[in-house]
Amino acid sequence: MRTGRKASLITAPWLILSNFLKKIYVQRTLIRNFVVRDLRARYVGSFMGFFWSVIHPIVLLVCYTFVFSIIFQIRPRPDTGTTSFPLFLFCGILPWLYFQDVVQRSSTILIDNSNLVTKTLFPSEILPLTALLSGFVNHMIGFAILLCIILFTLGKVSVFILLVPVYLLFLMLFTLGLSWFVASLNVFVRDISQIISVLLIFWFWFTPIFYSLDMLPERLLFLVRFNPLAHIVIGYRDCLLRMHLPDIEVLTILAAVSFFVFVAGGLFFRKTKREFADIL
């Protein structure tokens, strides 16, 4: 497929991406079916149905607000663009929840669907992708709620909101790459999903979700610098709350890193995929 075409550093990402999108297009029926099934499986048979996807983050938010805003009396710094801690928190936790949900679910997704992998000719790489897409739907619902709150409390959105989809794209690429990696690894070592749960807790607290960057001691700044999630969280806040142009240099690096993780995860999955049916 790629023979005879030397890809330069600039065209390579586009080639990979368009190749990827082509594959998605070929499998679109299957992917759509899976995403719908996934969304419905979460809520089918439950009384409130889809509303749980809304209620869950709101309850989480209320609890965190109670502890941090009312008990500990924490206020966001003035330069964060809002005085409301819940809004500050919600804006930061939204991309994180998306990331966490997809990675966690992907870690066991191949084992959960092992009969598909071993008994049918099935493109297993779409399983983490469907987790990503069904999480995307939830993320969009959360985002709509966030937008309502922003409009209600701040009364305006800035033009930088147009950059949110860019951050979201990088978040998705990064998440998908990592999910492929984790999903495949867990086939070989089942402990991976447990390890991932633990790592995600650390990752969560070392990401500036409850705090802003300037509250972090100087010597711990490296935690943020090498943490793509931190930049995405900061980016979301820059665009939505501070209404401030994000650091373009950081955005470029973020793009490169996400893309790298996406490609590396994809290649790793493709390399290990042949062994899945043997082991599952």
């Binding site: 099934r37 419905r40 499986a41 009969n115 598909l116 008994k119 049918t120 000719l121």
Partner: peptide, 16 residues
């Protein structure tokens, strides 16, 4: 085009 029937109903989800 191959159709493999290795196990009846693999891929069926009982909830649906």
């Amino acid at each position: 085009k191959v159709s493999a029937l290795l196990e009846l109903g693999s891929g069926f989800n009982p909830e649906f």
